[in-house]
């Protein structure tokens, strides 16, 4: 039950995109088509869970026992960069259709601040291993949810008569603001 609450809290109440502002770049960049938004969300969730596991192990088994906490940022970002590379090669070998669907999005994930933010938050909040996994699953689900909601709205927005200066990024940000307002309604759901 406790883990379920952690999942819900990371996915909806403290949504990574709409209330913690992590991963705004892909949120604005890749949210114009429903199918690509779904692929991006799934790829990110996948990398998030693996990153949570590996960075937890590095943080608790290598950096803390040796007093190397100051190496946190470089080591985490290197882990993420190499993981993304590894995942890309692995998927390419195992399943061609998935690779083709995710292909272009995988390299982009390295610079997604939601991934590094997740690793840093897990270290900062001192989650246990299992808690970390549920937290990363929730974060991934929340990211995917925000991305596909936005993509659905933007597909409709294509047909709308938006004033010229507001086309593109500005209207996307305003829509995101309204979405964030809606997500505020979830605050206080779990005390």
């Amino acid at each position: 039950m406790e883990f379920f609450l952690l999942f819900i809290s990371a996915a909806i109440i403290n949504n990574f995109v709409l209330s913690m502002f992590l991963g705004i770049c892909p949120f604005i960049g890749v949210s114009n088509k429903f199918s690509s938004a779904l692929s991006m969300g799934m790829a990110t969730t996948f990398v998030m869970v693996i990153t949570a596991v590996v960075s937890w192990l590095i943080w608790h088994l290598i950096l803390i026992p040796n007093g190397l906490e100051f190496l946190q940022i470089p080591s985490f970002i290197l882990v993420i960069a190499s993981l993304v590379q590894f995942v890309e090669m692995f998927i390419k070998k195992v399943s061609q259709p998935i690779y083709r669907a995710l292909g272009i999005f995988l390299p982009l994930i390295t610079t997604n601040c939601a991934i590094l933010g997740l690793a840093l938050l897990i270290a900062m909040k001192d989650y246990t291993f299992i808690e970390g996994i549920f937290f990363s699953l929730g974060a991934g689900a929340g990211f995917t949810l925000a991305l596909i909601l936005m993509a659905g709205i933007r597909e409709e927005l294509e047909l709308a008569d938006v004033p010229k200066p507001f086309r593109g990024a500005p209207i996307t940000l305003i829509v995101a603001g309204l979405l964030a307002l809606a997500f505020m309604g979830f605050a206080g759901m779990i005390s």
Partner: peptide
């Protein structure tokens, strides 16, 4: 209150960006 909540951040930046584009046009 909304301005210091996440929604306010998105709205402020969106409107400012729109204004900047309007000025350039």
């Amino acid at each position: 209150l909304i301005m210091i909540l996440p929604a306010g951040a998105f709205l402020t930046l969106g409107l400012l960006m729109g204004l900047a584009n309007f000025y350039v046009d």
